[in-house]
Each structure stands twice: as structure tokens, then as C-alpha cells.
């Protein structure tokens, strides 16, 4: 997150049909001149935000897997559990519930008609 500051932009990521309710999928954020980034997009239609986006990289298990975790709530936080070692990451803040010093990136994400857009 260091380096030259660039103004965040909205990017089209995928279609709403690509999403799985109550679960996650992985989408690739491709931007000219930047490394591709794996984004885990979670679709919880009954929540106010409906969509949540985290970095797909699990810093504990050290693999790109968070989109494949189980979604739920714990102690009032909406979370995804890493499929590798089961740490829980807050869908709203990216914080790891088991270790407050660990977190994953969180992205703003929105629905524009049938498109999912991400701010990065």
C-alpha cells in the first residue's frame, strides 16, 4: 500500500450472474500498467451492502483462497473463514478475528445494473 498515490477508480469486475449467493467467487482485477489482483467477492443479498470484496490472499495460509471460504457471522461480525486454517476475516474491515494484527485488503464494491464494480 506504499508508493505513489493514485486516485482510486471504479472498475467493472464481473456480472451479478457470476456471483453465488451466501458465498464467494474470485475475480481478477486487470488494470493497464498494474499487476493483476485477485479479488474475493462475497454476495449476501439480504445485507444492506449486499456485496463485499476482500483480497483473495490468505496471509496466514499464504495462498489465494479466501473466496473459497465459508461465509457467516461470529460475535456480530460478518466473516469468511479461510478454507486452509479457518481464521475468520471480517468482511467489512478485513481484520482477522483471531489475531487483530493481521488483516487483508478491503475494497469498495457496488452493483451497477447487472455489473459488479470495484473501487481500487
Amino acid at each position: 500500500m506504499t508508493g505513489v498515490e493514485t486516485k482510486p477508480n471504479w472498475y467493472r469486475l464481473c456480472y451479478v450472474d457470476d456471483l453465488v449467493p451466501q458465498s464467494g467467487v474470485c475475480a481478477l482485477l486487470e488494470r493497464a500498467g498494474e499487476e493483476d489482483q485477485q479479488i474475493a467477492v462475497f454476495y449476501l443479498p439480504e445485507e444492506r451492502e449486499q456485496l463485499f470484496a476482500l483480497g483473495n490472499y490468505d496471509p496466514v495460509g499464504k495462498a489465494f483462497v479466501l473466496s473459497r471460504g465459508i461465509v457467516g457471522d461470529l460475535q456480530g461480525h460478518l466473516v469468511v473463514a479461510s478454507p486452509l486454517y479457518k481464521q475468520h476475516f471480517d468482511l467489512r474491515t478485513g481484520r482477522c478475528l483471531e489475531d487483530q494484527s493481521i488483516s487483508v485488503p478491503v475494497y469498495q464494491v457496488r452493483l451497477a445494473d447487472d455489473r459488479v464494480e470495484i473501487c481500487a
Binding site: C14, V25, A27, L28, D36, V41, A63
Partner: peptide, 17 residues
Amino acid sequence: LKRFRRFVNSDGNDKGV
């Protein structure tokens, strides 16, 4: 089978693997 996609929006390689 729709779920068996590395990325829902791209056929790009998973550079993490």
C-alpha cells in the same frame, strides 16, 4: 460447473499457484 472457474471474469493464469 459454473463454480469451477479460477476467476469468474477472466481466463488469466493464477500467478499465485
